[in-house]
Amino acid sequence: MNELEKEAQWQRQAEQAEQGHSNAKDDPQVDRYRLVLRALRQPVGPQLPADFAARLQQQVIDSNRRAALEDGLVTLLMAIMVAVGLVVAYPYLASLIDQLRGNLPVAESLLGMTDGALTNVPWKSILGSALAIAGVLLIERNLGGDEQLSV
């Protein structure tokens, strides 16, 4: 048996002795390995704070709440940008539609069918309502942040 094999055997015997499966007394080599194994089972350095899990839980809740708020704000911002964009682009779109009417007879007939209906739509009320609904949804989502932990 060479040196490495002997070492491996001592290590095995030490493990068995520490697990109580054998009683390898009076073998200093095995005993040294047993001491090494005991040192290896010592707890490592300082430990995590006792409230580590609770703090992490709170951190996750806060992070979800922030993410929900950010999502809501981004959605609201996009809705506002789209609305503003439509308002700004309306004169250009109107002139484009007029040009299309002249060039495309089919489009003219389609637009002619809905022309009166489009001008009668209360666009300002619809935009106001949409923003109000988005705001209410946003507030509700944030108030319910404690219970709704999306993963």
Partner: peptide, 26 residues
Amino acid sequence: VLAGDSKAFAQLVERHQRLVWHLVYR
């Protein structure tokens, strides 16, 4: 946790924090 229970996450952490601590600290 996947169903949205934040307390369950804290329990998961408690169950595995020892392993993670020993591993990371080492």
